[in-house]
């Protein structure tokens, strides 16, 4: 699997394809990323957590904790990642995070 060079952090990813992500989820991702508010526009459904958003293991671990706190035990990113192999982890996107949310929060 090849990976493009990470794009500059100012540029949004595929803005024309961006569809809404639950604002609270975006806020959590921005928070654990320690990112400036403008970076939120990169948190699109097809953004990969690893290669596009450049979240590392410690940040993903923190995100897993915050998701469970906010959305409950079913929003279990740690369990999702524990079940994936390397290509699956590399392919994990914001849309996959979104699918973890309880239905009432996913809107």
């Amino acid at each position: 699997m090849s990976h493009p060079e990470p794009p500059s952090f100012e540029k949004p990813l595929n803005p024309e394809r961006a569809t809404p992500v639950a604002p609270e989820l975006v806020a959590l991702v921005v928070e654990v990323a320690g990112a400036p508010p403008g970076w939120a526009r990169r948190v699109t459904p097809d953004a990969r957590l690893d290669a596009d958003l450049l979240l590392d293991e410690t940040e993903l671990s923190a995100l897993a904790g915050r998701l469970r706190e906010r959305f409950g035990a079913s929003a279990d990113l740690a369990a999702l990642r524990a079940g994936l192999d390397l290509p699956g982890l590399e392919a994990l996107t914001v849309a996959d995070l979104h699918r973890l949310l309880p239905e009432e929060d996913a809107r």
Binding site: D50, A51, L54, D56, L86, L89, E90
Partner: peptide, 9 residues
Amino acid sequence: GGHGLAALR
């Protein structure tokens, strides 16, 4: 080079 899982690979 690289970052994250790509660097690990």
